[in-house]
Every structure is written in C-alpha cells, then in structure tokens.
Simulated scan of single mutants.
Amino acid sequence: MRTDEAINEIEGFLLWEAEKRRARGRAEAFCAGLPWLTESQRAEVERRYCHDQAELSRDCLERIAARATALRAEYASVHRALRRRLLTGYATGTVVVAAAVGFALGGR
C-alpha cells in the first residue's frame, strides 16, 4: 500500500470514529430528554439511534463520494479541453510569429 493510500485510510478511519462519537453524544443528549426510560431502555434507544445515525451518515458519505467522482470526471474533461485550446493557441501564435519573422527576414 502506498503512503498516500495508507494516510487516506487512516484519515477515513479517524473521521468515521469521530462521527460515531458524535452520534453517541447526540444519542445520549436525546435520551437525557427522556428521563422516564429505564437503563435498559435508554441503552436500547441509544444503540438504535447510533445505528440509524451510522446508516444516515454512510448514505450521505456515499452520495458525496459519488458526486465528487462525477465532478472529478467533469473537471478533468474541462481541463483537457482548456489545455487543448491553450496548446492550439500557443501553436498558432508560434506559427504566426515564425511566419512574420520569416517574412521580415525574407523581404530584405
């Protein structure tokens, strides 16, 4: 595994762990507003809340990743078109300058 891939994997792991901690915190805050729950009920509500939040987060991340992939392809296409136009303009300018220099030198 390359270093950048390993770093991305570690970063992804750390971000996901942080998301799980945030979900646990939200679950605890949610259950704090339900003081009549028994300890086992509170644990079950927190577990379900965390599970639902994990699914929601995963779905959201998958949509973001798909959009990022689509944008990357779109931007790469635009970049190739712009690079082609720039190189065409550069080549055209070079030919024009060379012709002008040739004409100027040949006219003597």
Rank of each mutant, 00 (worst) to 15 (best):
L37N: 01
A65K: 03
R24T: 03
S77H: 00
Y75N: 03
E17P: 05
L34V: 00
L86G: 08
A68V: 12
G93K: 00
R22H: 06
L14C: 12
A54V: 08
Q41H: 07
A6P: 04
V95D: 00
A66E: 15
E9D: 13
S57D: 13
R67M: 10
T92W: 08
L87R: 13
G102L: 14
A27L: 01
R67I: 11
L61G: 03
R84E: 11
L56Q: 10
C31V: 08
A91C: 07
E44C: 06
E74G: 05
A66T: 12
C31T: 06
E28K: 04
V97Y: 11
E74M: 01
L87G: 05
A91Y: 02
E11P: 04
A100F: 04
A68K: 10
R2T: 10
K20Q: 12
P35K: 08
S57E: 06
I7E: 10
L105N: 13
D4R: 11
E55M: 14
A66F: 11
E19R: 00
A29E: 05
E62T: 07
P35F: 02
I10K: 10
Y75A: 07
A99K: 06
E11S: 14
L86R: 13
R63E: 15
I7T: 07
E5I: 15
W36N: 08
E19S: 04
F13V: 07
V95F: 14
R84W: 08
V96H: 09
D59L: 00
T3D: 11
V45K: 03
L61Y: 00
R63P: 05
G12I: 12
W16G: 04
T3H: 13
G107R: 06
V97F: 07
G25M: 06
A68M: 15
Y49N: 01
S57Y: 07
A99T: 11
I10S: 05
I10P: 01
